[in-house]
């Protein structure tokens, strides 16, 4: 599988990264080189092998439905680049109305 420049641009959009043409070109080469080295894995016989998402056989990890103290509003907004009336401020939203 080879990654095209269009693929790289699409992935940059998905990842919300504004990359320069130069970065796109360099990343295309690097990603192809890294994935090329990974090809060997594709040759393994994985028929019937279950995927492992965790290495420990833990199941059903939950917590009881109990309220715990959270952050004060000051701490919640401590690192906010912009805040107003106790809320985080964002610029206008273009291209999508009312959520995804």
């Amino acid at each position: 599988m080879s990654i095209s420049e269009a693929d790289v641009r699409h992935v940059a959009m998905l990842a919300r990264l504004a990359l320069s043409d130069e970065q796109i070109t360099r990343l295309q080469g690097e990603l192809n080189s890294i994935l090329g080295n990974i090809e060997k894995m594709q040759e393994l016989d994985l028929e019937g092998v279950e995927p492992t998402s965790h290495s420990i056989p833990l199941r059903n990890a939950t917590r009881p439905d109990v309220v715990r103290p959270g952050l004060s509003r000051d701490l919640a907004l401590l690192n906010a680049p912009q805040a107003e009336n106790g809320a985080f401020v964002i610029p206008r939203i273009v291209g999508a109305e009312e959520g995804a």
Binding site: R63, D65, V66, V67, R68, P69, G70, L71, R73, A76, L77, N85, G86, A87, F88
Partner: peptide
């Protein structure tokens, strides 16, 4: 009807002053 949120211990309620039922 639950006491706390899905993945943390913040209370479940409606409305209120912004960002007063939050945690990391």
């Amino acid at each position: 009807s639950l006491n706390s949120k899905m993945f943390c211990g913040c209370p479940v309620a409606f409305g209120g002053e912004p960002n007063t039922r939050v945690c990391p």
